[in-house]
Amino acid sequence: MEAIEKTKNTVQNRLQNKKVIVTGAGNGIGRGLAEAMGMHGAKVAICATNPKTLSETEEILKNSNIEVFSKVVDIRIEDEIIDFVKESVAFMGGINVLINNAAVMPSTRLETLTSETIDHVLSVNLRAPILFTREVVPYMKEEGVGSIIHMSSVTGHNGFPEVAIYGATKGGLNSLARGHAMELAPYNIRVNSISPGTVDSPMLHRFVQENSSNPEKALLEFSRIHPRGTVASVEEVANTFVFLASDESANITATDIRCDGGYCVQGVQPK
C-alpha cells in the first residue's frame, strides 16, 4: 500500500503492545487494516474465507516484519470463531483490539430476495461480530483494556435500494456498539463503529462490475456524489481505525465515526 509504505519510517508505534484481530483480511479494506495495525507496532491475527488472498495478505505483512497469525475461517460457524480466537490469543499472548470487518453485500431487489440471502448476510455481517465480541471480552477483561471496532457503513444511516439488508446489518452494528459499550465500560473496554462512505476497494469494483453496464462511468459517479469529489482510499479509512485502536481515543466509546467525506450529510445516491 503506497501511502503506508511512504510513512513506514515515520510511524511512532501508536499501537505498540497491542494485539489485534482483523476479520475479513483477505484483501481490500481488511488487508489495509491489518497492514496499518502492524505498521504501527501491533501483533496481528487475521482471518478470511479465501485461502489464496489470505496467504497473500500474510506474506505482505511478514515482508514488512509484522508478527502475524492467519487462518482460514468460515465466520458463519461458531466453533470456527471460537477456535480462531483461542489460537490468536495463544500466538499473540492476549487480545486487546478486535476489528469486525468481514462482510458480504449482495445487491438484490426486494421481490427477488431469498431467505438464503437474508440468512447469509445476517450471519456474516451481524451474528459473527456478536460472537467474536463475546469470545474476546474475557481476554480483554484479563488485560484490563480493550477496543472493539465494528466496520459499519453509510448504508447504516441512509437508505439505499437493493442493499437494504446489508444496511440493516450496519445499522445493527451501530446499535450493538452502543449497547456493548455501556455494558463493558466498567472493564475499560471501549466499543465503537466506523461508517465509511464509498471506498476504492475490491468490493466496490466487484459491485459496479456486477450491477452496471458501464463500470468506469459508475466509478466516476460514486466519486461525484461525495462532497470532496472522490471516494475514500483504503489508507484513509485505515487511519481512523488506527486512532480508535490506540490509547489516543481512550475517552471515545459508544460512538459511530462517519468516515465518509460528508456523504451522509449530502445524501445523494448514485444513478
Score class of each variant (00 low, 15 high):
residue 45 A to N: 02
residue 46 I to P: 02
residue 46 I to V: 07
residue 46 I to M: 08
residue 47 C to G: 03
residue 47 C to Y: 02
residue 48 A to Y: 13
residue 48 A to D: 11
residue 48 A to E: 10
residue 49 T to E: 13
residue 49 T to A: 14
residue 50 N to Y: 15
residue 50 N to M: 13
residue 50 N to D: 12
residue 51 P to K: 11
residue 51 P to F: 09
residue 51 P to D: 10
residue 52 K to V: 14
residue 52 K to N: 15
residue 53 T to E: 13
residue 53 T to W: 13
residue 54 L to K: 00
residue 56 E to L: 07
residue 56 E to C: 06
residue 56 E to Q: 09
residue 57 T to V: 08
residue 57 T to K: 05
residue 58 E to F: 09
residue 58 E to S: 08
residue 59 E to A: 09
residue 59 E to I: 09
residue 59 E to Q: 12
residue 60 I to G: 01
residue 60 I to P: 01
residue 62 K to Y: 00
residue 62 K to M: 01
residue 62 K to Q: 03
residue 63 N to L: 03
residue 63 N to W: 00
residue 64 S to Q: 14
residue 64 S to V: 14
residue 66 I to A: 04
residue 67 E to C: 08
residue 68 V to C: 01
residue 69 F to M: 00
residue 69 F to E: 00
residue 70 S to E: 01
residue 70 S to L: 00
residue 71 K to M: 10
residue 72 V to G: 07
residue 72 V to S: 11
residue 73 V to R: 03
residue 73 V to P: 02
residue 74 D to R: 01
residue 74 D to P: 08
residue 74 D to S: 05
residue 74 D to Y: 02
residue 75 I to P: 06
residue 75 I to C: 06
residue 76 R to K: 13
residue 76 R to S: 10
residue 76 R to H: 10
residue 77 I to D: 13
residue 77 I to H: 15
residue 78 E to M: 13
residue 80 E to N: 11
residue 80 E to Q: 13
residue 80 E to A: 12
residue 80 E to Y: 10
residue 80 E to I: 05
residue 81 I to C: 06
residue 81 I to G: 04
residue 81 I to R: 03
residue 81 I to F: 06
residue 81 I to K: 01
residue 81 I to S: 02
residue 82 I to H: 11
residue 82 I to P: 07
residue 83 D to N: 12
residue 84 F to R: 03
residue 85 V to Q: 07
residue 85 V to E: 03
residue 85 V to D: 01
residue 85 V to H: 03
residue 86 K to A: 15
residue 87 E to W: 09
residue 88 S to D: 07
residue 88 S to H: 04
residue 88 S to M: 07
residue 89 V to M: 08
residue 91 F to R: 10
residue 92 M to Q: 05
residue 93 G to C: 05
residue 93 G to L: 04
residue 94 G to Q: 06
residue 94 G to A: 11
